[in-house]
Structures are given as structure tokens and as C-alpha cells.
Write a protein that binds this DNA or RNA. Structure first.
Lengths: 227, 227
DNA sequence: TACTTTTTAAGAGTTACTCTCATTTCATGG
DNA sequence: CCATGAAATGAGAGTAACTCTTAAAAAGTA
């Protein structure tokens, strides 16, 4: 991959672990969290310096001051170091917290806004690096899409819960996957255009398309586009 | 992966190269085609016998009677041996051949039917094996999704051509990706349910969902579903 | 037949990832 | 405070996909 055009800003380190159960937290657990973060930080730094492909697990291990074995014990694949961040349970939580009679499009719109607030805007630089890597590195994009299926299943469950439909039905699964696919494409679009747009607005437009189809080519057309 | 539950039928070998330019076809070209097919055939056979992961490139090379280097010269990755089959240009062709004033949903429905006829029904066993592997082997699924983006771009172009829209616009890209994502999920659904359903009907239902959203939960619900 | 070009084979090298086993580090009860 | 058990780590060997380079073989051409 092109090692030039790197991303510059730093990783804001402390997402101070949102209000989970606080008291019982042994030294062991704390160390684990630190190690995990050390590996991530090291990876981000190295990737910014050298590019993704040029960064080996050994280098990551060295900089994080752990053994390569440990890296693999924490992350199953190299791509996961960059990508994983357990959005799904949070999203699911959010989803369940919405009133049961809220129309589905409203729900998804609201939840996405929330997700963007906590997941993207709170750590904008990391979000940018991630999407950037998704565009540049096939393996990362691949892994991301792989995680799409997982998120998809979750969305299926959510829809099923709200509408009393079978989460395994073709219709629900297709709907969910189309949604996730569209959102994924939105991320790529954002990155490919140099993160110039406001991500939240892009997502709004995406949801609009998914709900009502392509707008009849109208004044709207030359709105944000340029090329 | 589970090496049990294998697929049994054989690979119908001759798709006799649809009417391209016939005359100038040197020995060299013919050999290349043969080699390519030999590698594919060997791979399918071995995968059926031993499962995907247990099958190494060396074994494939041995059975196809070429060197491992040659395998890699023909296919960039192991997954590609199983998956690649150049549907995209055919689809594009089909797409362009439709009358320009035909409404888009009709077009896509028609084209999909055509694609299924030539791409799935004509070589049903291979189609089944492929989708089966998509479900069972993460790497294959990944690679398939990777190819989604490529197909997606093509669909973008097609939509752009027909509607005079910008193929790079967020709206078009999202629409295309949702479409492809939905269709991909349909394939998975088909395979996960043991290829019991008629694939063409599944695709019809998929297009319906994409066009009109989830059907209001109605008699339709208990139509084909069972679990 | 000689000469050029393409295709292949052979082999060495890299790296992500797996497994195993010995060692270290933390938790706990006496 | 120390002994015992459990968990985390490190070290190392092993596998297999993929890359690159170079020499031989095959096909096309004059």
C-alpha cells in the first residue's frame, strides 16, 4: 500500500470505560486492559509511520513490549487490532432502549445518530484512520465486511424483537444486510473523499435512500457532490 | 471446517465459451484455458474430498499437474480459485441490452433472472458448492464480499448510464451496495437452508424487499419459512 | 533451423497464524 | 507471610499462503 499520504493526528487515549460495574476490578483485569490498549496504540502508531502492510506483528509486539504470542492471544488477526471495538452491544442496547411503538425508520435514524456521536465523533482521528485503512488495505476492508454479517445478525434480532417477525426469515435478513451494506458504503465514501463531508449528514442521506429509493434526479443532485 | 457433510455431484465441465471471437486462438491460449480449468477442477475435487482448509495449494498443484508457482500465476489467492468466474461483464452486457426507458426495478429483476439462468442453474452443483463454502469458510465469504465492492461499482455505472446520475454520488453508491448486499445475503440464506428453496424465487422476494421495504407482517409471513 | 518471447518450474524468503510447554505473575486461604 | 492453584506470558517450532528471482522449456516467428 502507499506508505505516503499518512494520517497525522494522535489517538485520544482515554475512553474512560463508560459506567459498567466499577468495584470488582483485580490487578489482573487492569493489566489485561492495559496490554490490549498498548497493542492497539502501538499498532496505530506504526501504521501511521510505515503503513499497514509494512507493519509486522513482531514490530507491534516489540513496541507494545509484549511477545508476539501475546498479540495473537489478544487479537485473532492483524486486522482486528485496527478494527475491533465492540460497537455491536452498545448499538443493541441503544436499540432496545427506544420506545416499542416508535416507527422503525425513526428508530434506526436515532440510533445511528447516537452511534455516530459515541463511536465516531468522540474519537474522530481513529475513525478516520480506520476508514482510511478500509479504503487502502483490502484485508482490512475484507475483515470489516466480515463483521458486517455479525452486525447484520444483530440487526435481524432487533427488528425481530420490535416487529414480532422471524429474525431468520429471508425478508428480515435481506433488509438488515442492505442496511449494513449501505452504511458500510457510506464509510468508504466518507474516506475516499478525504473525510471532507460531515459523516452524520452522509448517514442521513443514506437512510433516506434506503427508505425511499433513489431520489428523482432533482435540484438535490448538485448538493454536496463535486466531481 | 467440518469435513463431513460434503457435496457429492460432479462439475459439469464445458461452458463452451460463449460466442466471443473464435478464429485466432493459438495453442498458447488454448493451453492457458486448459490449465486454468485443470486447477479449478482439481480444487473443487479436493475441497469436496477433504474440505477447504485441509486442501493446500501444493495438493492442488499436484493434482492439476502444474507447479505451485503456476497456481499463483493463474489465481491471486486460494479463494479466487473457488470463486472467480467473471460474472460482472456478462451482467453489464445484459444490463446495457435492456431498453433505455424500462423502469429500473423491472430492469434489475429481468437481469437477475437472466444471470441466475446462466450463472446458477446452468451449473447448479458448482453454485451450491460455492455458496456452501461461503457459509462454512470465513476466508471465502470475505473474498466474496470483497468482490461485492467491485460488482457494486459496476452497478453504479449501470445506474448512472440509465438515469444520467453521477455514478460517484453517495446516493447511487449506497443504492448499489444495498442491492448487492441483499443479494449476497440471499445466497447465504439459500446455502444455510440446504439449498432447499428455488433460488430464483428467493431473489424475487429479495428484490421485493429492497424495492418496497419489509412487507407488513401478514399471511405472507408463514409462506416458505419453517424454523 | 535459429532466434525471440512467453510460460513454467524450482527454490528461497517473508509473514501471519497455530500449538505446545515451561515460566512467571496474580489471587487466595491458612 | 507463605504455599498452593489458576491464569497470563514467553519462547520456540511448525504450517501454509503468498512473493520474487532465476533458469529451463515451450510456442511463435522468420
Amino acid at each position: 500500500m502507499p506508505d505516503n499520504d499518512r494520517m497525522t493526528a494522535a489517538h485520544s487515549p482515554a475512553t474512560p470505560t463508560p459506567p459498567t460495574d466499577r468495584p470488582p476490578l483485580g490487578l489482573r483485569e487492569r493489566k489485561k486492559i492495559k496490554t490490549r490498549e498498548a497493542i492497539r496504540t502501538a499498532t496505530y502508531a506504526l501504521v501511521r509511520e510505515q503503513g499497514y502492510d509494512a507493519t509486522t506483528i513482531e514490530q507491534i509486539a516489540d513496541r507494545a513490549e509484549v511477545s508476539p504470542s501475546t498479540v495473537f492471544r489478544y487479537f485473532p488477526t492483524k486486522e482486528d487490532i485496527v478494527l475491533t471495538d465492540e460497537y455491536d452491544p452498545v448499538l443493541m442496547e441503544e436499540l432496545r432502549s427506544r420506545p416499542a411503538d416508535e416507527p422503525w425508520p425513526d428508530t434506526i435514524r436515532y440510533v445511528m445518530r447516537e452511534a455516530i456521536r459515541t463511536g465516531v465523533e468522540e474519537d474522530l482521528e481513529v475513525a478516520k484512520l480506520r476508514t482510511h485503512l478500509m479504503v487502502q488495505v483490502p484485508a482490512v476492508r475484507s475483515r470489516m465486511m466480515e463483521s458486517m454479517s455479525v452486525t447484520g445478525r444483530m440487526v435481524c434480532t432487533a427488528i425481530a424483537e420490535r416487529t414480532g417477525r422471524d429474525p431468520e426469515s429471508l425478508e428480515v435478513r435481506v433488509y438488515a444486510m442492505a442496511l449494513i451494506g449501505g452504511l458500510m458504503e457510506t464509510s468508504l465514501y466518507w474516506a475516499e473523499n478525504g473525510h471532507r463531508d460531515d459523516f452524520a449528514s452522509l448517514v442521513d442521506r443514506t437512510l433516506e435512500v434506503l427508505q425511499h429509493g433513489l431520489p428523482t434526479k432533482s435540484p438535490t443532485e448538485s448538493r454536496t457532490e463535486n466531481h
